[in-house]
C-alpha cells in the first residue's frame, strides 16, 4: 500500500497535474467565458465602446438600463408566466400519469400488460420531429392551436418516464406489498401508501427533468403558438434577435434575464440532476 501511495503522491507534482489544470482552466474559460461576456455586455452603457481593441470586459459606463429597455419592448414576464403554465401541466401530468402507469406495469398482473409495455417502449423510440406535423394537425383539429394546453398536451405523459418509474416500482421488494395485502389493502391503497413513498426519489427526478424539458422546448411551441400573448419564453426570446439586431447589449440583457430562473433552479436542485443522469435520466 505504501508503495501505491508513494507513486500517487509523486504523481501530484509531475507535469501531468499541470496539464490537467491547464485543460480544466481552458475548458472553464470556454464554457463560462461566453456567459461572463454576456453579463458584461448587458451592463455596458452608452459610454462604452463595444468594439474596443482589445475588448473590454469591465464596463466603463455601467448601467442597468439595458434590462429596463428589454423589459419595456419585449414582454418577458408574460413569456415566463406562459412557460410556467406549460411546465406546470407537463410536470403534473408526468408525475401523476407516469407514476400510475409505471405502478400498474410493474406491480399489477393483468392481460395486456405486455402489450401496454410494448406500446410505451415503441413510443419512446419515436423521435418527436418525425411526428410533429401530424401532432400539429391533430392539435389544430381539436382547436387547441395557439393555446398553452395545446403546447403541454403531447408531453404530459412521456413514455420514457413511464418506463423509468416502472423500473423503480419493480425494484420494491415483494414483501412490502404482501404485508399490505394481508392487511386488506386494495391496489389503490397499496399504490399510494406503500409503493409511491418508496420511489419518491425517482418521481422527483422525473418532475425536475419534465420541468427543464418543457421550459427549454422550442420546436413544438414554435409550431403551435402564433400570437405574441401566448409565446413561451423560448419562442418569445427568439424574437430578440430580430428586434434588437443592431444592439448586442439588449440581446445580452435579454439572455441574462432568461437565464436567471433556470440557473437558480439548477443551483438549488443540482444534486437531483446528477442523480437523475446516473439512475437513468433524460436531457432537457
Amino acid at each position: 500500500m505504501s508503495a501505491v501511495r508513494a507513486v500517487r503522491s509523486r504523481r501530484r507534482v509531475r507535469p501531468g497535474a499541470v496539464v490537467q489544470w491547464v485543460v480544466i482552466a481552458a475548458m472553464f474559460v470556454l464554457l463560462a467565458g461566453p456567459l461572463v461576456w454576456q453579463l458584461s455586455l448587458a451592463l455596458k452603457g452608452m459610454g462604452d465602446d463595444l468594439y474596443a481593441k482589445p475588448p473590454q470586459l469591465i464596463p466603463t459606463d455601467p448601467t442597468l438600463s439595458n434590462f429596463g429597455d428589454v423589459l419595456a419592448r419585449v414582454p418577458v414576464p408574460r413569456y415566463v408566466l406562459n412557460s410556467l403554465v406549460v411546465a406546470f401541466f407537463v410536470v403534473l401530468g408526468n408525475v401523476i400519469g407516469a407514476t400510475a402507469a409505471g405502478y400498474a406495469l410493474a406491480r399489477l398482473r393483468f392481460r395486456g400488460r405486455g402489450l401496454a409495455t410494448a406500446i410505451f417502449l415503441i413510443a419512446m423510440l419515436v423521435p418527436v420531429e418525425t411526428v410533429i406535423v401530424s401532432q400539429f394537425l391533430l392539435v389544430r383539429s381539436i382547436a387547441l392551436q395557439d393555446t398553452l394546453l395545446g403546447v403541454a398536451l403531447p408531453t404530459m405523459v412521456a413514455a420514457l418516464n413511464i418506463l423509468l418509474l416502472r423500473n423503480a416500482f419493480a425494484n420494491i421488494p415483494d414483501e412490502l406489498e404482501e404485508a399490505a395485502v394481508l392487511d386488506g389493502a386494495n391496489a389503490w391503497q397499496r399504490f399510494l401508501r406503500v409503493c409511491v413513498p418508496q420511489v419518491k426519489g425517482v418521481i422527483t427526478v422525473v418532475a425536475i427533468f419534465a420541468f427543464v424539458g418543457s421550459w427549454n422546448d422550442f420546436l413544438w411551441p414554435l409550431l403551435v403558438l402564433s400570437s405574441d400573448d401566448n409565446y413561451t419564453l423560448t419562442v418569445g426570446l427568439n424574437r430578440l434577435r430580430g428586434t434588437f439586431y443592431d444592439d448586442p447589449r439588449l440581446i445580452a440583457a435579454g439572455t441574462i434575464v432568461a437565464l436567471v430562473p433556470i440557473i437558480v433552479f439548477f443551483s438549488f436542485l443540482q444534486r437531483y440532476f446528477f442523480r437523475g443522469l446516473e439512475s437513468g435520466g433524460l436531457k432537457g
Binding site: A116, P154, V157
Partner: peptide
C-alpha cells in the same frame, strides 16, 4: 392506472 398514460401516448404519439 394506465388510462392517462395510454391516452396521451396513444393520441399524441401513436396516432
Amino acid at each position: 392506472f394506465l388510462v392517462p398514460a395510454l391516452a396521451v401516448v396513444g393520441v399524441f404519439i401513436v396516432l
